[in-house]
Computed example of a mutant assay.
Amino acid sequence: MSIVVALRRAAPLVIAAAGSFLLTSSHAHAQWWKRAPVDFEECADAAEKSATKAEKTAALADCNAKFAGRRKPGGGYTYYDFLQDRTFDIAGPNPTPEEQKKIDESYTAYLADQRRRDEAAHAMARQQREQQEQQAQQLQQVALRTEVERVPVPLERPKVLQTTGARPKGAPCTKGSFSCEWPRLSEGLNEIKRLFNPTPSKPAKKS
């Protein structure tokens, strides 16, 4: 009797232990047959089934870190390089070493082309600046020359006759003008002065 009672008391514990074992075994089997996502799209589909928004965001970030390529509608994958703002065709969900080498070489050529463009842009800007400076200088010179031309040139000051009334040498003589008659009158006055004021004779030297 004591043995039967003990078995009856132990039966619920055995059943519970067996159920726990079966559940654990089933969960492990489910994890074993569930395969990992092969590309970003499968990984993103699984992330969409996350229980919370935070888990979904973390799962999508993990998908983006694992897979660089994206599916193409016609098959294959593309890789977007944001540094070049360009996409590259790749065979799988991630670039192979050879494909990555070609992407890096393209980026090197992109940098060289960008440097040439920058140098050409700087040279053009410098040329335009020099042309603008030359045009400004030309406009300034034209404005200065125009301003000089607007200033009136003073007329030559006329020559004033001497107070003696003598006309300038070589100047034409107009009959009846003072400048022509003055020399004749001056000689006549000198003759009258000599008549009234004779020149004193020199005293004779004593021997």
Rank of each mutant, 00 (worst) to 15 (best):
8 R>K: 12
26 S>Y: 14
201 S>G: 08
78 T>R: 04
58 A>E: 10
1 M>W: 08
154 P>Q: 02
155 L>Q: 15
105 E>G: 10
195 L>D: 05
179 S>A: 06
110 Y>C: 01
49 K>A: 07
206 K>Y: 05
13 L>Y: 13
52 T>N: 00
122 H>G: 11
56 K>R: 08
22 L>P: 03
43 C>H: 02
128 Q>N: 12
124 M>W: 07
18 A>C: 04
162 Q>V: 09
6 A>I: 14
122 H>D: 15
166 A>S: 12
53 K>V: 14
195 L>P: 07
26 S>M: 14
138 Q>P: 03
58 A>V: 09
171 A>R: 11
195 L>A: 08
143 A>R: 15
84 Q>I: 10
7 L>Y: 13
21 F>Q: 08
81 D>Q: 03
7 L>R: 12
172 P>M: 03
196 F>Y: 13
161 L>S: 13
197 N>Y: 07
109 A>I: 11
35 R>F: 05
155 L>P: 15
26 S>N: 12
29 H>E: 05
83 L>H: 13
113 D>H: 06
153 V>N: 12
10 A>I: 07
99 E>P: 03
44 A>Q: 07
200 P>I: 00
14 V>H: 02
8 R>S: 13
5 V>C: 11
118 D>G: 05
137 Q>R: 15
94 N>S: 01
171 A>D: 05
62 D>A: 08
5 V>L: 09
155 L>F: 09
54 A>D: 04
57 T>K: 14
153 V>F: 07
183 P>E: 05
70 R>I: 02
111 L>Q: 03
93 P>D: 01
70 R>E: 04
124 M>L: 15
70 R>D: 01
20 S>H: 08
88 F>S: 01
156 E>G: 13
52 T>P: 02
142 V>M: 14
84 Q>P: 02
39 D>W: 02
109 A>G: 09
29 H>V: 03
120 A>N: 05
157 R>M: 06
127 Q>T: 10
157 R>T: 15
141 Q>C: 09
198 P>A: 01
93 P>C: 02
29 H>P: 10
142 V>Q: 15
95 P>E: 02
9 R>G: 12
22 L>V: 15
10 A>P: 13
62 D>Y: 02
183 P>R: 03
185 L>Y: 05
121 A>P: 09
26 S>H: 13
11 A>L: 15
